[in-house]
């Protein structure tokens, strides 16, 4: 039941966001920049996730919540 609501939530959001999409295909120059990438420096990201996974109880959100190590 919870999952169903979640799925609806996501699609609802998509439709909502799609409705206000004002960016045309030829206007993606800014979002294509290196500085705008969601994972700009993969090693920074993995170092942070690794450290926080080994020191804190939470996991996931930005990516999968597996840890891949015996550090927690």
């Amino acid at each position: 039941m919870k999952k169903t609501i979640m799925t609806f939530g996501l699609f609802g959001l998509t439709i909502l966001l799609g409705g206000c999409a004002t960016v045309q295909p030829w206007e993606r120059d800014v979002t294509a920049r290196q500085s705008m990438q969601l994972n700009k420096n993969a090693n920074f990201t993995s170092a942070h996730e690794h450290i926080y996974f080994s020191k804190e109880a939470s996991a996931g959100g930005r990516s999968f919540d597996g840890g891949g190590c015996g550090c927690n």
Partner: peptide, 21 residues
């Protein structure tokens, strides 16, 4: 993991994720 990434304007990106483990 389920996620949506939305280009809001030419210079604004939003991302929403839900992850389950």
């Amino acid at each position: 993991i389920a996620g949506v990434t939305q280009v809001m304007t030419r210079n604004w990106l939003l991302q929403f994720n839900y992850s389950y483990g």
